[in-house]
């Protein structure tokens, strides 16, 4: 049974794990930022690979606990998924963050930029969703 209390606890685990990176290494747990730095091959960036490897391994462990949380088949078309990935990568790079860096770490440290980024991607996301539904491709 998947309850709101369990979801809240899972969120708490996310906050604690992101907090561990801040306290132990002084770094923000922003996935797109960490990935972008790895792509740029930033100096002293070895920790980025450890983090990304841990993240994927965490997904594997999580799926062993809750197999039904991983959908084998994505509900949308392949072309739409590719477009989504391109826009997510582009938007995260230009906006300097994604749902983890801006959403949780940024809001968690009361950053104005991050809070506005979250408000923007959520409202534009909601608007896009409405447009997709009206277009019959929701």
């Amino acid at each position: 049974m998947h309850s709101h209390l369990q979801t809240l606890a899972a969120g708490g685990l996310f906050g604690a794990a992101a907090g561990l990176l801040l306290i132990a290494r002084g770094k923000i747990a922003g996935i797109s930022g960490i990935l972008g730095g790895a792509l740029r091959r930033e100096p002293n960036g070895g920790w980025r690979y450890s983090f990304l490897l841990g993240l994927s391994l965490g997904g594997l462990i999580g799926s062993a606990i809750a197999p039904d949380a991983i959908e084998r088949v994505h509900p949308t078309s392949l072309a739409r998924l590719v477009l989504a990935g391109l826009l997510i990568g582009l938007g995260a790079r230009l906006g300097n963050g994604c749902t983890s860096g801006h959403g949780i770490c940024g809001v968690g440290r009361l950053s104005l930029r991050s809070t506005l980024a979250v408000a923007t991607f959520s409202s534009i996301g909601a608007l896009t969703h409405v447009c997709l539904e009206l277009g019959g491709v929701g």
Binding site: A9, A17, I31, G54, L55, L57, G58, I65, I70
Partner: peptide
């Protein structure tokens, strides 16, 4: 420690159903 942080994030995202 860095890998453990990533690992915790991954487990949390799956258990929270954000996947």
């Amino acid at each position: 420690v860095v890998a453990l942080s990533g690992l915790g994030l991954g487990v949390a995202l799956v258990l929270g159903r954000l996947t």
